[in-house]
């Protein structure tokens, strides 16, 4: 799997259309870890410390995928999802949460989330989710 992904990424790099992945997480260490992971996969990453920062960003229309933390001060991940869905500006969302809370999972999935992953996140799980979004999106596009 990882091997084929790499091949695929390299093919994207060739056309120099590197998809943009938004990372919204209040924890800086998680943000950094995710950014590096996205980079190692060959995508570009945009990092936001809060939902408001994301909403204020001019680049968000180009975002192809979002990795969203559930537990955040102020607007939570679920609130942001709801807001984006209502404004029909929601990119495909991969949720990352500390709590294996079924309610959170159901709400997120009902609103169209691609994945809901629990921390600590296993590498192959999150890569699988990103591939699903970007490869599928590329196939459609």
């Amino acid at each position: 799997m990882p091997g084929s992904a790499v091949v695929m990424i390299e093919s994207f790099e060739l056309v120099s259309v590197s998809p943009l992945v938004a990372i919204v997480d209040d924890d800086v260490s998680m943000r950094e870890a995710l950014e590096d992971l996205i980079g190692s996969l060959g995508y570009r990453a945009l990092m936001f410390g809060s939902a408001h920062d994301y909403l204020a960003s001019p680049e968000r229309s180009q975002v192809a995928c979002m990795i969203l933390d559930v537990q955040m001060p102020g607007m939570t991940g679920l609130d942001l999802q709801t807001h984006l869905v209502e404004h029909k500006t929601a990119p495909p969302i991969i949720f990352v949460t500390s709590f294996g809370d079924d309610t959170v999972r159901r709400r997120a999935m009902r609103s169209g989330a691609v994945c809901v992953l629990e921390k600590p996140v296993q590498e192959d799980e999150i890569i699988g989710c990103i591939d699903k979004v970007l490869r599928g999106g590329a196939g459609e596009g």
């Binding site: 870890a33 992971l37 500390s98 600590p120 590498e123």
Partner: peptide
Amino acid sequence: NQPIGAVMMDAQTAARW
């Protein structure tokens, strides 16, 4: 959970590099 999650991800990413 935060630092541990980050550690895991970083370690795995390091391996990828």
